[in-house]
Design a binder for these strands. Structure first.
Lengths: 249, 249
DNA sequence: GTCAATTATTGACGTTTCGTCAAATCTGTC
DNA sequence: GACAGATTTGACGAAACGTCAATAATTGAC
């Protein structure tokens, strides 16, 4: 029924433009720098038109978060398709996670904002569910590999410890670390110089603590990471190199 | 010179009242629920008077964060005074951290807010430094114990890994986990039922991964935690029991 | 006790931003 | 080219921030 006319396409494209302007505003000037009048002015449309696309400011922010979340799911999917032992496959997700954090460092900023600034309450149910579903998909892909590790007999979880609990640990470690890195400009001042690559090492030590075999003391996972990078993430390589992506470090 | 008159004391006390009203507003209605008119109205003072105490809304929020941060430092100090091996003392901080998170669960909410909502930029240099100094004191107390572990020969850090890096890991894990728990009401839905006590277990596994002796597989740290609780945190015990604080679980 | 100087309080006001909606404009169809 | 329906516009009201001149209270010297 709904014919895709020139006008319809134009409207569709405008939605992208709104998000892109919103993103640059929010990144350069923070939460308060994003305002509807400025978006409208910058795109040379009236405010009413912007409100036709998004019923309020909060929805725009959530939409931005969903946009990067979708890229994250895709990266996680590709990472988890790396063939091998469970812990090697988890390495695949680790690399995906690191690539994600480097390509979209602002995401962690957005995510915190979404959780905090009453955005959640004001946004529509539909978008909220979309966001949560993204998050759950990511966590599920990790949980699946943890369960595989148990099934493979390479990982024994402690009494009363579920795969979800381990996912909680990994997730907390990674998101905590990236959030700190994203919002604390003076980590270096505290003696933390390469936050991104450190996270991978820390996560591996956590896995060692659970005796997930092969242990990182017996097996060089940085080689696995390198392999993951070249088999699963070729398309991203050049973009990453511009950012000086050092997996070996 | 500046005599402490009745009036001065009155003003001092009002500052406390402002913070307490602000806190309940922000907790019950989120970032947007906190507004200066409502604080003024609720305390039956005019807005101008509130502005005499705090030059803007952001300073109030930061002051709230500093207030809990100071309690945190105090808890950390007491925890780290627990006598014993380095890893036992770190357990002391772990317990302190867990007590803190249970007594002031809103702190992690505040902290994220401070990092995100342009609060940082708008607040005064003085308060910003105060906040950072609190944070650094906490991290330093952890770093000190890590270094002690190395000196004690119970911990060997990997090549190129500094004590600060391990602090970064612990800090990220703990703050990530508590932030998630504070802002994600449906962790249980994801299969994570006791976020607080899980964190301690996860952190201990991370330390095991670094081979910090004695390992938690050889030594029951929940007994240590119990002892810490009774020797270092007696005053808090009754308050915690009302919250059903299960260290053994 | 009085009074001038200092200090504290007030609330009306200007400003910014959100989100709305009736009126104006544009688009596609017959 | 006339008409219905979709789209766009921007003036408007509401809410909140932060200011400041005017007012009130307090203090301390005499």
């Amino acid at each position: 029924m709904t014919k895709v006319t020139r006008k319809k396409r134009e409207i569709q494209q405008r939605e992208e433009k709104i998000l892109s302007v919103a993103q640059s505003l929010i990144l350069s000037e923070g939460y308060h720098g994003l305002n509807m009048d400025r978006i409208a002015e910058s795109l040379e449309y009236s405010k009413g038109t912007i409100y036709n696309h998004f019923p309020n400011k909060e929805e725009i922010i959530l939409a931005l978060g969903i946009r990067t979340m979708e890229s994250r799911i895709e990266l996680f999917r590709r990472g988890s398709e790396f063939p091998g032992l469970s812990r090697e496959r988890l390495q695949g997700i680790g690399v995906a996670s690191e690539i994600f954090a480097r390509l979209y460092p602002h995401h962690f900023f957005l995510e915190q904002m979404i959780r905090i600034s009453s955005i959640w309450e004001k946004a529509s149910e539909r978008r909220r569910q979309q966001f949560q579903s993204c998050e759950m998909q990511c966590m599920a892909s990790v949980a699946k590999i943890v369960s595989a590790g148990v099934a493979e007999n390479n990982l024994k979880l402690p009494e009363g410890f579920t795969p979800q609990d381990l996912v909680y640990g990994l997730w907390s470690l990674v998101s905590g670390a990236y959030s700190l890195a994203a919002s604390n400009p003076n980590l270096a001042q505290l003696g933390i110089n390469e936050p991104y690559s450190r996270v991978r090492l820390l996560a591996n030590h956590l896995l060692d603590g659970f005796q997930w075999r092969p242990l990182s003391t017996d097996y060089d996972y940085s080689i696995v990471a390198e392999k993951v990078l070249h088999t699963q993430f070729l398309p991203e390589l050049s973009r990453l190199e511009q950012l000086q992506f050092p997996l070996s470090r």
